[in-house]
C-alpha cells in the first residue's frame, strides 16, 4: 500500500549528519592494500599464486552467495568486500604448491563455517580465513607444510623447501635478513615479503582502519619474549628480529589479528588480546611441535574476545566521582 505523506521533509532521530566512512569503503581499502602482498606473492610464486588467489576469492564469493540466497538476505551484501578479503587472506596463508581442490575446500570452510553459520558479516567469532586455514592444516597436514621455493630462486631440488622458521626449528639455519625483508624465501603466498607487509600495515594504521594497539602489542610481546630467550641462550634461540620478520607474524599482526569483527571492542581488552597473541606465538614457536603458531594464537585469542569485552569495560567519564 502506498504511504501518504503530509510533507516532503524527512524525519529522523539526531544526529542529522554522518561521517564519510562506510563498511564497503573500509573493506575495499583493505582489499586495495592487500594488493601489496598479493603482488609480492605473484612476483615470487608466479602462476601458482595467481591460481590460488583466484580460486580462493571466487569460491569465497560463491559460498557467500549461496548462503545469502538460501537465507533470503540482501544480495548486495555480497559486494561489501568482506568475502573478498577472506578469500585473499586465506590464499595468502596457503603454501604456493597447494592443490586447487584443497583451496576450494579451504575457501568454502572459511566462509561457511568461519562466517555464515554465525549469521554473516559482523557476527563471526573467529577470523574466517584462519578457520579455513586451520581446517586445511588439520585435514591435510603434509600438503599444508610442503613448501616450494620462489620461482626466481633457481633451485635444483625444487620439490621441497623449508620456510625460514622451519629451517631454524628443525635444522637451525638462519635465513639472511635481506631475503626475509624482500620475500625471497619459502613460505606461504603472502607472508614472505616483510617489507611490503610493513608498508601495507603502516598505510592501514594511518587510515586508522586497524587498531594500532594490536600490531604494537603483538610485535612488542614477541620481541621482548624472544629477546629474553635470546639473551639467555643465543645459541639455542634465534634473534628476536628474525622471529618478527620470519613466518606469518607480520601478516598476522597487521592483517589477521586486526580483523575488526573478531578483535575486542574495549581498549584494555585489545591490549590483553594483542599481548596474548604474542605470548602464544612465542610459546608455540619455541616450545610447540609446530614451527609456526600465529594462526593458532589468533584463533585462540579470538575465542577469548567475548570474555575480554565483558570484563574490560572502560571507565566512563566521571565514573566513581562523588555526587
Amino acid at each position: 500500500m502506498e504511504k501518504q505523506y503530509a510533507s516532503d521533509f524527512k524525519i529522523s532521530s539526531s544526529p542529522h549528519l554522518r561521517g564519510k566512512e562506510s563498511v564497503p569503503k573500509i573493506m575495499y581499502w583493505v582489499v586495495g592494500i592487500l594488493m601489496l602482498p598479493v603482488a609480492s606473492s605473484i612476483y615470487f610464486f608466479g602462476m601458482n599464486a595467481v591460481r590460488i588467489l583466484l580460486i580462493s576469492v571466487i569460491v569465497s564469493l560463491l559460498t557467500e552467495y549461496i548462503f545469502l540466497v538460501s537465507r533470503k538476505k540482501d544480495i548486495s551484501l555480497l559486494f561489501d568486500g568482506s568475502a573478498i578479503i577472506t578469500g585473499i587472506l586465506l590464499a595468502l596463508t596457503l603454501p604456493p604448491g597447494l592443490k586447487s581442490s584443497y583451496v576450494v575446500i579451504g575457501a568454502f570452510v572459511s566462509i561457511a563455517l568461519g562466517k555464515q553459520v554465525f549469521g554473516g558479516l559482523g557476527y563471526n567469532m573467529f577470523n574466517p580465513a584462519l578457520v579455513g586455514r586451520a581446517f586445511l592444516q588439520a585435514s591435510f597436514p603434509v600438503a599444508m607444510t610442503t613448501w616450494i621455493p620462489p620461482v626466481i630462486q633457481k633451485m635444483v631440488d625444487a620439490k621441497t623447501f623449508a620456510t625460514p622458521l622451519g629451517g631454524f626449528k628443525f635444522s637451525h639455519i638462519l635465513t639472511p635478513y635481506k631475503n626475509l625483508l624482500i620475500g625471497n624465501t619459502g613460505g606461504s603466498l603472502g607472508e614472505t615479503s616483510a617489507i611490503l607487509l610493513i608498508v601495507g600495515g603502516i598505510i592501514l594504521l594511518i587510515k586508522k582502519y586497524i587498531d594500532w594497539k594490536i600490531p604494537t602489542g603483538i610485535l612488542l610481546t614477541v620481541f621482548v619474549l624472544e629477546g629474553g630467550l635470546y639473551l639467555i641462550n643465543p645459541e639455542k634461540y634465534a634473534n628476536p628480529l628474525f622471529h618478527i620478520l620470519a613466518g606469518g607474524l607480520l601478516l598476522g599482526a597487521f592483517f589477521m589479528a586486526t580483523d575488526m569483527v573478531t578483535s575486542p571492542i574495549t581498549p584494555k581488552g585489545t591490549w590483553i588480546y594483542a599481548v596474548g597473541i604474542g605470548v602464544l606465538v612465542v610459546l608455540i614457536r619455541v616450545f610447540g611441535g609446530l614451527p609456526e603458531g600465529v594462526m593458532y594464537s589468533i584463533l585462540i585469542m579470538n575465542a577469548f574476545v567475548p570474555l575480554l569485552n565483558r570484563y574490560t569495560r572502560p571507565k566512563i567519564l566521571g565514573e566513581g566521582g562523588k555526587k
Binding site: V117, F126, A138, I284, G288, G289, I300
Partner: peptide, 19 residues
C-alpha cells in the same frame, strides 16, 4: 552452533599439540 564452535575451538587448541 555450540558444537560447531566447539569444533573450531578444538581446531584452535590443536596449536598446542607438541607443546
Amino acid at each position: 552452533i555450540t558444537l560447531l564452535v566447539a569444533g573450531i575451538l578444538a581446531l584452535s587448541f590443536m596449536g598446542f599439540a607438541g607443546l
